[in-house]
Amino acid sequence: MRAREPKGPLDYARSTPLRLWVGLVLVFLYAPLACLVAFSFNESKRNIVWTGFTTDWYGKVFDDGDLITAFVNSLTIAALSTLVSLVLGAMVAVALWRFRFPFKPAFEGLVALPIVVPEICMGVSMLVFFSRILPWPTDLPWPLDLGSIVIAHISFSFPFVAIIVRARLASFNRELEEGAKDLGAGEFRAFFDVLVPHMRPALIAGALLAFTLSLDDFVITFFTAGPDTVTFPVKVYSMVRFSVTPEVNAASTLLMALTVVLTIIGLRIQGRDVAEMGNG
C-alpha cells in the first residue's frame, strides 16, 4: 500500500476541525432551503410539525389566480429585462473594449454604479422618478403596465452583463476579426461571425445573472410597481405578512426549481463553449 501523504494545513477533507467547519457552512446554507421544500409537502397548515405527506399545496398554488398572475408577471419582467440588458450590456462592453473616447473612466464608473448603489436608494430614486418625472400610466394593458418595473430592472441588470462580457473580451484575439474581414466579411458580418461567438459564454452567464436578479428582486420592484401590478416576490411578501403558509413554501419551491434548472442549462452550454474556445 502506498504511504499516505502528510496532511497539509488546508487539506480540509482530512482535518476534523475543517471538516466540521465545512459541515456547518453547508448546514446553514442548505438546511433552511431543505425545510422550505420539506414543509411544502406537509399536511399541516402550520410549518412547525410534520403531520403527513401531501401535494395539495401545489394544487392550491395553481388554483390561486393572484399568485399565478404574479408569477407570470415576474417571468415576463425577467425575460424582457434580460433581453434588453443583454443587448445593452454587450454593446457597452464592446464600446469600452474597443474604443477610446473622452471621459472613458468616468463612463466606466457610471456604468458600474448601479452595482454598488444600495438597492433601497435605487428603489426610492426610481419611485421618485416614475411618480414625478416620468409618470408611468396606470391603466395600460398587460404587459405594458410592467414597463416601469422592466426599465428599473434593466438599469440594475445590464451593468453585470457589461462587466462579465468586458472580461471575456479581454481574451479575444483581434486577428480573428481582421481575418474575417480579410476573407471578405464587412464590419457587421465580422462582428456576428467572430466576436459574438467568442462572447457567447459571457452572454449566457450574463443572461443567467440578469434573469435571476430580476426574478428575485423585491426592494426596487416594491418601489416601482404600480398599485395593480404585483410580482412574485412582492406577492409572497404580502402573503407572509399574515402567516407563512405551506402554499408559500410550495410556490417558492417551484421558483427555486425553475432557477436551478435554468442555471444548469446555462452552465452546460457555457462549459461546452469554453471548452471549444479554449484553443483559439
Partner: peptide, 9 residues
C-alpha cells in the same frame, strides 16, 4: 496571420 486566426468555433 501570425496567430493563424483560425476561427475556433
Amino acid at each position: 496571420f501570425q496567430s493563424y486566426a483560425v476561427f475556433p468555433h
